[in-house]
């Protein structure tokens, strides 16, 4: 193992706010988000690229932030669950998850909402099959997914109508 590990200077934008930091190369993106930036809405679930609780948007693409090194986000634009609301108003996706009871314990919910955000940015009117495929990388152990599907359909309607 190397004796002295050089830290790496990175710049990134998180929820519209620019940050400059020095990070250890082995720091995971999710740790940067939670520990360095104190944005604890992004959760660590399995920590093995399975459950999707740590999903964030990196340059518009949903990624599992437990499986990306923080140094790789140099120059990137990130959106975490904290970045969904606008001017104190919940994002239509957030509102729909509440209205449709698309959550119970809420642990998987931030990840699911960001997976939904990528889906709806590419497909305004997804079919049920397309929704199921889009959230296949997000595990929920409470709901049985039915109300999550309803929430995403509701969010799609609401964004389309806006």
């Amino acid at each position: 193992m190397p004796d002295v590990i050089e830290k790496v200077a990175i710049k990134l934008t998180v929820n519209g706010k620019a940050h400059s930091l020095e990070v250890e190369p082995r720091m995971l993106l999710v740790e940067l988000i939670r520990e360095a930036l104190d944005l604890t809405g992004t959760h660590v679930g399995c920590d093995t690229t399975y459950c999707g609780a740590c999903t964030v948007l990196m340059n518009g693409a949903a990624v599992k932030s437990c499986t990306v090194f923080a140094v790789q986000a140099d120059g990137a634009e990130l959106i975490t669950v904290e970045g969904l609301e606008r001017d104190g108003q919940l994002h239509p996706i957030q509102k729909a998850f509440g209205d449709a009871h698309g959550l119970q314990c809420g642990y998987c919910t931030p990840g699911l909402m960001l997976a939904t955000a990528q889906l709806l940015s590419q497909n305004k009117q997804p079919s049920e099959k397309e929704i199921r495929k889009a959230i296949a990388g997000n595990t929920c152990r409470c709901t049985g997914y039915q109300n999550i599907l309803k929430a995403i359909q509701m969010a799609a309607q609401s964004i389309k109508g806006a």
Binding site: A61, A62, V63, K64, T67, A115, K133, G137
Partner: peptide
């Protein structure tokens, strides 16, 4: 392959 998130990377 895997899921959306993994396919993105």
């Amino acid at each position: 392959i895997a899921d959306v998130q993994v396919r993105n990377r």
